[in-house]
Design a protein around this nucleic acid. Sequence first.
DNA 1: ATTATTAGCTACAGTCGTGTATCTTAAAGT
DNA 2: ACTTTAAGATACACGACTGTAGCTAATAAT
Lengths: 237, 237
Amino acid sequence: MPEGDAEGDFGDDVEARAEHGTHSDAEDDTETGAATENGTPTGGRTRRRGKALLDAIYTAAVEEAAVARGGRLTMDAIAKRAATARSTLYRRWNDPTDLLLDALADLHPVEQPAPGADDLRGDLTRSLRLMCDWAFSPAGRAVMAIVANPGRDSAAVEALYERVFAARGGTFTQTVLRHYAEHGHFDPARLTPVVVDLGEALVTKRMMDTGADPGDDYLAAIVDQAILPAIGLDPAH
Amino acid sequence: MPEGDAEGDFGDDVEARAEHGTHSDAEDDTETGAATENGTPTGGRTRRRGKALLDAIYTAAVEEAAVARGGRLTMDAIAKRAATARSTLYRRWNDPTDLLLDALADLHPVEQPAPGADDLRGDLTRSLRLMCDWAFSPAGRAVMAIVANPGRDSAAVEALYERVFAARGGTFTQTVLRHYAEHGHFDPARLTPVVVDLGEALVTKRMMDTGADPGDDYLAAIVDQAILPAIGLDPAH
DNA sequence: ATTATTAGCTACAGTCGTGTATCTTAAAGT
DNA sequence: ACTTTAAGATACACGACTGTAGCTAATAAT
């Protein structure tokens, strides 16, 4: 399973930024007139309503889920990170997972690949790059925390797929593959569930093994060594 | 990402068994002379030493890690599941992760594929079946809980790879692929890190998406649609 | 039988997080 | 300006878990 050295871990960068954010608590804002969690100057005031409050809560939930040690998401931690009261959270959500699902649904849509006309290899590589960038975003990390946990709550996972992924129309690479198959570049019968999942599967596994972005060379290797052969366009032939 | 309905979740079966195990606490054993956690009759006694105690603790740690909701592993839960005192755990380990790593190292080795002479496709499929079976074992689940968590402890992951995986020599499919390449079935230059990781990556992702064993048909599809094309033996050609 | 070791039990003080209740008052609407 | 709404602050009781300490006696060795 392990190849190469771990260059860093999923959570290190976000953790550093998150610590900074957590540091500005309500009292500090009141005294110094500093900006709130989401960067909107509030003239020393701490109360927010409507979208500003929701944004702060959603951002906090996703960031907390992305970095929580032991994969544990708590109302208390979200509230602290959002610089808001727990009672405010409990007025709307029963538990942190409900909140996180709302947050993830709100943070959609994710940027989708925009395939061109005549660069299958390039478009595939770019779509994998998009996937990597998303996967290392707080939202991507939060999703991973939900999906990958063996003790996961199956209802939460189902809700995640219905509310967050259903709007997406499949994998990042699927959009590209379907486009080029429809334009006659290869036999559409090749687009099986296995083939559609290839790119993302390899990227996901690589990230789990190394804890780091796979890098553009590895993405290109995925395209050349796995995806293209699987659709009958093996560069080595 | 989602394909098909979730047939079950990672943790449901083990949880049912685990609940039963947890149910026989120390007092019950003392009163009824029932077997202890690991099935060894102790004539109504609760104290164990040496291997019997370690086995109980290791089994409990791995099972607990495999099912913990919210991904949280605690000394208290392990102690309860092992029907032993926390002080016993703290005498040897500082924290539950140290204990879990010792447990996983002890539970090795995992059964390895035994490739034959002339059935590449069958041997690949069987190796993926082995991987699935391991992945759904408590040890496999516990490993997943460590590796897949975005907020993971990088030191723990490194220790896991060094102490548990280093002894394994690569992926389940790698053993088979290397064997057949050495016997001239295909060009060994095809055995890149991407290709070696293909089978396990697809299985891992499938399990994450569905929460269930992928099934033999899907394993066969992985071999036919992804692995064989990647090594230049595309059945569709 | 005696001795050494340590498992298991219990207690303690402390932290973290939960879920709820209540109050003040900032923010928004009229 | 006045009214309504609900955000934020605070308190409470409780459970889970932590890490430690001390004691009894079961287990293993001699």
